[in-house]
Simulated assay, not measured.
Amino acid sequence: MKEQVSIRPATSADAEQIVEIYNHYVLNTTITFEEEPVDAPEMARRILDVRSIPLPWLIATSDSAVIGYAYASKWRARAAYKFSAEATVYLRAGQVHKGIGSELYRHLIAALQVAGVHAVIGGVALPNDASLRLHEKLGFEKVAHFREVGFKFGRWIDVTYWERILNP
Score class of each variant (00 low, 15 high):
27 L>T: 12
26 V>G: 08
153 F>S: 08
50 V>C: 11
58 L>K: 03
113 Q>L: 04
155 R>C: 08
50 V>K: 01
145 H>C: 10
119 A>I: 15
63 D>H: 12
137 K>D: 10
140 F>L: 11
83 F>N: 11
89 V>C: 06
151 F>T: 03
84 S>C: 14
121 I>Q: 06
162 W>R: 02
127 P>V: 05
26 V>Q: 09
126 L>W: 07
87 A>Q: 03
160 T>I: 07
92 R>Y: 07
106 R>N: 09
114 V>W: 03
63 D>K: 13
58 L>E: 04
47 I>K: 05
141 E>W: 06
113 Q>K: 15
21 I>V: 13
164 R>T: 00
54 P>D: 14
56 P>G: 10
42 E>L: 14
163 E>A: 10
141 E>S: 15
5 V>M: 07
29 T>M: 10
62 S>V: 01
130 A>G: 10
154 G>N: 07
155 R>G: 12
113 Q>M: 10
114 V>F: 07
157 I>D: 05
51 R>I: 15
139 G>F: 01
57 W>A: 01
161 Y>Q: 12
21 I>F: 01
71 Y>L: 03
166 L>T: 00
30 T>Y: 05
161 Y>T: 14
26 V>H: 11
64 S>I: 07
25 Y>M: 07
70 A>P: 08
111 A>E: 13
64 S>T: 14
47 I>H: 04
137 K>E: 12
105 Y>I: 10
151 F>G: 05
137 K>A: 15
19 V>K: 00
19 V>E: 00
62 S>M: 04
107 H>Q: 15
144 A>P: 07
114 V>D: 14
110 A>C: 12
160 T>P: 01
146 F>D: 01
148 E>G: 10
133 R>W: 11
165 I>E: 09
112 L>Q: 02
122 G>W: 00
103 E>V: 05
84 S>R: 02
19 V>W: 00
89 V>Y: 03
50 V>M: 02
29 T>G: 11
49 D>Q: 15
91 L>I: 00
123 G>H: 01
81 Y>L: 06
134 L>N: 02
91 L>Q: 01
158 D>R: 00
92 R>F: 06
85 A>Y: 00
129 D>R: 11
32 T>L: 09
65 A>K: 13
156 W>A: 04
157 I>C: 09
123 G>Q: 02
23 N>H: 05
150 G>W: 02
8 R>W: 05
123 G>I: 03
149 V>Y: 03
109 I>L: 15
7 I>G: 01
78 R>G: 00
127 P>M: 06
88 T>I: 00
167 N>H: 13
98 K>G: 05
73 S>I: 11
92 R>Q: 12
8 R>T: 05
89 V>I: 14
146 F>M: 12
21 I>S: 03
28 N>I: 03
167 N>A: 14
110 A>I: 06
143 V>K: 07
44 A>P: 07
86 E>T: 14
112 L>M: 10
115 A>W: 06
69 Y>L: 08
85 A>F: 01
27 L>Q: 15
156 W>Y: 13
165 I>K: 12
99 G>K: 02
22 Y>H: 11
69 Y>M: 12
103 E>S: 12
